[in-house]
Simulated assay, not measured.
Amino acid sequence: MATPQVQGNGMLSREQLLHLFDRFCFLTSQPEVKKRIADAVQDKQEAVAVTTAIQEEIFLEMGIDPRYGISCLGKVSTVYENDLDLVIQFYKFIGKEEIACDEAELGPDEFSKRMLGQQKLQEKQLEMLKYMRKFPLDDQSAILDKIHQQMENANYESESSILSTEHIQGINVQRKASPLFMPR
């Protein structure tokens, strides 16, 4: 009986990567897989070790050497830098892995609270962006610069990505009153 050929060189194809991303997303949404990750965390194992093992199992299903497959994941954003859709799917895959780990580490109640907090933050960010669009592009640029500065000062804490409407108006008034501002 011949052993099946296992891919172990070159780079994974776009189709192989998309299959991995879809399969991983499906598996980590299943209750038994969530329990597997949570049980490992209870046993003092790293959640990411379990999610990596799940990825390795998917690679085996696909006929790909798991070590090779994992090593290819580290190269996706450079090898496929011109394939924006694939890179976006890759970052969604990474995000899904982080969510699976957080859910296992935090437990259902704390995880639900965190997700609700994230949703509220995103809603505030969306409202702020909608408000910003009322301003000319130069003003929008100044607002984004202020947000960037605020985030740097707060060590990139999520809440620092929000400016109130009053703060935004203050930036625009200050910028327009500044003698350094020279319209183009």
Rank of each mutant, 00 (worst) to 15 (best):
K92G: 11
T52M: 07
Q119M: 15
M115C: 15
K146Y: 09
D145V: 10
K113R: 12
Q45D: 12
E166R: 07
K44V: 03
P4L: 10
Q55F: 01
L180I: 02
S178Q: 00
A49Q: 12
L121N: 12
R114G: 03
K35Q: 15
S178W: 00
I58C: 01
Y156E: 08
N172Y: 03
L121C: 11
D145P: 02
L73M: 07
K124H: 11
M11I: 09
A100Y: 07
A100R: 01
L27N: 06
F59I: 01
I70G: 00
K146S: 13
S71Y: 03
L60G: 00
D65C: 07
Y80C: 08
C101F: 08
M1A: 10
A47Q: 05
A142M: 14
F181C: 02
G95T: 08
L12P: 01
N9P: 00
A47L: 04
Y131E: 06
K96S: 12
K134L: 11
P183A: 02
Q125L: 15
M1I: 05
E57W: 02
P108S: 14
Y131K: 04
N9H: 13
R14T: 11
E127P: 03
I147A: 04
I54R: 02
P108G: 08
F93P: 01
R36M: 13
A154K: 07
D139K: 14
K130R: 12
F59Y: 07
D85Q: 10
E105I: 06
V87G: 05
R67Q: 11
A154V: 07
Q55R: 08
D145I: 10
Q5D: 06
G63Y: 04
V41H: 09
R67H: 05
E56K: 13
Q45T: 03
G74H: 04
